[in-house]
Amino acid sequence: MNGLLYDFTHYQFLINAVLASIFASIILGLLGPLIVVKRISSICGGIAHSALGGIGIAVFLGIAPLWGALGASIAAALVISYTKLKGSQHEDIIISVIWSLGMAIGLIFIAMTPGYNRNIMTYLFGNILLVTNSEIVVSVVLSLIVFAAVFTFYRQLIAITFDEEFTVVRRLGRNVYFVLLLLMVSIAVVMLIKITGMILVIALMTLPSATAMLFVDKMSKVMFWSVVQSLIYCLTGLVVGYLLNLPIGATIIVICSLSYFVLLLLKKNLCCSGNKQ
């Protein structure tokens, strides 16, 4: 135990991993609930996977992959917003195209970059132990931006995720807030690539919120408990994965899913015994 504490306070890569978990959890906990209630997790999947395209191009051009990921996921968010807000019939197709085209472009550019093939696993499945100091700085800034935006426009974000038609009729800026939401998702995706990778990111975005919604009936509380849960899952996943030498992103997802099912069962039993009385 002491050894563990020593490791986590003395090795920069472990300190960074903890910091990355904290800031990612804040973003996850704030955005996840909005994504779940608005039922746009496939849109988020599309945005997440498109990031690989940006990473491939950035690697090929010798730019930091993080910026490539951010650029590509923002572009994907804008294209999807446009399609969705136009009310296009082809929304589903566009999302799948972005999803796979992004990955395809990424794979091609990575293949064209000598000596980069092995690192691709990092982006697909994450590696929280490789988070750099500058990436921490970026995630602090990004999570502050997301926090400020969600706090300031909390009521408007609730309104568009609750009843979109109402916000159109009331002229509450449905388009603006929808684009804002997807842009924040792009930011979240970029921050999470290092932690869980783009393939697992959706699970970590949706499961804590779905779990919280089993127990509380107010959005602000759902957000609070999602942040808390994300933090618990990320940190326990980090410690367990580190101790047992398992891939950390995958460990986090397993813990998170287990917790969802356990709490779901618990809630079912609690409510049933409550009914009997």
Binding site: V37, T152, R155, I158, A159, F162, R170, G173, M213, K218
Partner: peptide
């Protein structure tokens, strides 16, 4: 058209009738 399972209470729904496009507080 809204999601009936949304974690929102009656009071908040009614209040949203007064919501403005921009505001600086939640």
């Amino acid at each position: 058209t809204f999601n009936k399972q949304y974690p929102i209470r009656v009071m908040e729904v009614v209040l949203s009738g007064m919501l403005k496009k921009f505001s600086l507080t939640p």
